Simulated scan of single mutants.
Amino acid sequence: MQTRVYNIAFAESTRQAYLHFWDCNLHCRGCGCQKVVYDFMLDRNMHLHLAEPRGIATSPQRFMDLDDVIETLFGLEVRWVLFEGQESSLDPSMPLIAEAAHRRLGTTNVLLTNGMKMPDLRYIDKVSVGLKAFSKELHQDYTGESNKTILENFPKIFKSGVPMMAETVLIPGYIDHDEIGRVAKFIASVDPNIRYQIDAYFKAGNNPWRRPTSDEVERSVAVARKYLNNVYAYKGTEPREFGVKSIFPTEEELATRELAPAVDACEPIPT
Results as ranks from 00 to 15, higher is better:
residue 214 S to K: 15
residue 188 A to W: 04
residue 142 Y to F: 15
residue 213 T to W: 14
residue 226 K to H: 11
residue 181 G to T: 11
residue 178 D to R: 14
residue 213 T to S: 15
residue 175 I to N: 13
residue 235 K to L: 05
residue 183 V to D: 07
residue 221 V to R: 15
residue 199 D to G: 01
residue 160 S to T: 12
residue 166 A to R: 10
residue 182 R to Q: 13
residue 201 Y to N: 04
residue 139 H to A: 08
residue 165 M to A: 09
residue 212 P to C: 08
residue 206 N to A: 12
residue 148 K to I: 11
residue 183 V to Q: 07
residue 225 R to S: 13
residue 142 Y to L: 11
residue 142 Y to H: 10
residue 176 D to C: 08
residue 195 R to D: 09
residue 231 V to R: 10
residue 235 K to A: 06
residue 223 V to E: 09
residue 169 V to E: 13
residue 201 Y to A: 02
residue 208 P to S: 08
residue 164 M to H: 03
residue 190 V to R: 02
residue 234 Y to W: 12
residue 161 G to P: 00
residue 178 D to H: 14
residue 164 M to C: 03
residue 191 D to N: 15
residue 211 R to L: 04
residue 179 E to A: 06
residue 176 D to K: 12
residue 200 A to E: 07
residue 156 K to D: 01
residue 195 R to W: 09
residue 217 V to F: 03
residue 135 S to V: 03
residue 206 N to D: 15
residue 180 I to N: 02
residue 192 P to D: 10
residue 207 N to A: 06
residue 156 K to Q: 12
residue 225 R to K: 15
residue 236 G to S: 06
residue 204 A to I: 01
residue 202 F to M: 12
residue 181 G to C: 06
residue 174 Y to A: 02
residue 185 K to P: 00
residue 141 D to A: 14
residue 164 M to S: 02
residue 144 G to W: 12
residue 223 V to M: 04
residue 205 G to L: 08
residue 152 E to L: 09
residue 151 L to Q: 05
residue 147 N to K: 08
residue 198 I to P: 00
residue 134 F to L: 02
residue 197 Q to C: 06
residue 136 K to L: 08
residue 216 E to A: 07
residue 157 I to S: 04
residue 163 P to R: 11
residue 201 Y to T: 00
residue 209 W to N: 02
residue 219 R to D: 10
residue 194 I to M: 05
residue 171 I to D: 05
residue 231 V to D: 11
residue 145 E to K: 14
residue 203 K to N: 03
residue 136 K to P: 00
residue 177 H to S: 04
residue 224 A to V: 11
residue 232 Y to P: 00
residue 163 P to N: 11
residue 213 T to D: 04
residue 187 I to D: 04
residue 203 K to W: 09
residue 231 V to Q: 10
residue 223 V to L: 05
residue 224 A to H: 07
residue 169 V to R: 07
residue 146 S to M: 06
residue 196 Y to S: 01
residue 222 A to P: 02
residue 195 R to G: 03
residue 156 K to S: 05
residue 190 V to C: 03
residue 147 N to C: 10
residue 231 V to P: 01
residue 230 N to S: 10
residue 140 Q to K: 14
residue 145 E to H: 08
residue 179 E to Q: 08
residue 186 F to A: 02
residue 160 S to K: 10
residue 149 T to R: 13
residue 225 R to E: 15
residue 171 I to V: 15
residue 150 I to N: 04
residue 140 Q to G: 04
residue 142 Y to R: 03
residue 156 K to W: 07
residue 227 Y to G: 00
residue 232 Y to W: 10
residue 157 I to E: 06
residue 219 R to Q: 09
residue 140 Q to C: 01
residue 141 D to T: 09
residue 233 A to K: 13
residue 162 V to W: 14
residue 134 F to I: 01
residue 171 I to G: 01
residue 220 S to W: 09
residue 197 Q to G: 03
residue 193 N to G: 02
residue 236 G to F: 15
residue 206 N to C: 01
residue 141 D to H: 12
residue 138 L to C: 02
residue 170 L to N: 05
residue 230 N to K: 15
